[in-house]
């Protein structure tokens, strides 16, 4: 029990003293996972939209692939990203293995199917004729897509939350492609793993609390956006 109390005490001390290393790690986590989520939103919502609104041969297969992708194990993603970015791998010339860029890439690959899958479901649950109704109101295709996004904003924000939640808490791929280099590619999850393995439970607990707080704050903000201004 002492271990935990001591850990929590130490954690609060670290937090309240604004330890520079901890702040650096937190900021990097936010930057990497934020960027990866942003990229995945772009690809995921567009792909979800295209698949939801069009009928083409093999559509069912694409939908199952997307849904399978929603449960992509981060270590598998880490493995393949590592292979691709390896010095003599297909993308080795980029020379980004063990950099934050590689971590963004891996996290975006993890988040994209999640965002795509939820976007797809979000658009599909809108009434079938809604799209025709919007076009009949004189909308251009771009206006139509924008109105559909607005109509599906609640589930689409859920997609953002799920995507961000998935990558900020992910550790396997980040360690594999980022290398957990101090001050460079060390994020909250990789640091927690390392400190725990070293027996530095106080720091590990502090990092864990920050991770939880971060997830809570981000989701609280998104939930606020999601639930605000619904006319009564």
């Amino acid at each position: 029990m002492d271990l935990i109390f001591e850990g929590i005490k130490q954690a609060f001390f670290l937090l309240l003293s604004f330890d520079r290393e901890v702040i650096g790690i937190t900021w990097l986590s936010l930057k990497i996972s934020g960027t990866a989520t942003f990229v995945s939103l772009f690809i995921g919502i567009s792909t979800g939209m295209v698949v939801a609104l069009n009928d083409f041969p093999g559509r069912r297969l694409v939908v199952s692939l997307i849904n399978t992708g929603m449960g992509l194990p981060p270590v598998v993603v880490g493995l393949f990203v590592t292979i691709f970015l390896w010095r003599n791998g297909p993308l080795g010339f980029l020379e980004i293995l063990y950099t934050p860029a590689a971590m963004i890439l891996a996290q975006a690959i993890i988040a994209t199917p999640i965002v795509t899958g939820i976007s797809l479901a979000a658009i599909q649950q809108l009434p079938r004729n809604l799209r025709l109704q919007i076009l009949a109101l004189g909308a251009t295709r771009i206006q139509m897509v924008w109105i559909l996004v607005k109509e599906a904003k609640l589930p689409l924000l859920a997609a953002v939350m799920a995507g961000f939640g998935g990558v900020i808490s992910e550790v396997g791929a980040s360690i594999m492609v980022g290398g957990n280099i101090k001050g460079y590619s060390r994020v909250l999850t990789t640091a927690t793993v390392m400190e725990t393995s070293r027996g530095n439970f106080d720091i590990a607990i502090a990092l864990g609390i920050i991770l939880l707080l971060l997830a809570f704050v981000i989701n609280a903000i998104l939930t606020g956006i999601q639930q605000r201004e619904r006319p009564r």
Binding site: N129, L132, Q133, L135, L137, G138, I147, K150, P231
Partner: peptide, 17 residues
């Protein structure tokens, strides 16, 4: 299409006022 209007069986209203 900007010169016509269409009303469906379902009202198909947007989630606003």
């Amino acid at each position: 299409r900007r010169m016509l209007s269409m009303v469906f069986q379902e009202p198909l209203l947007f989630d606003t006022t």
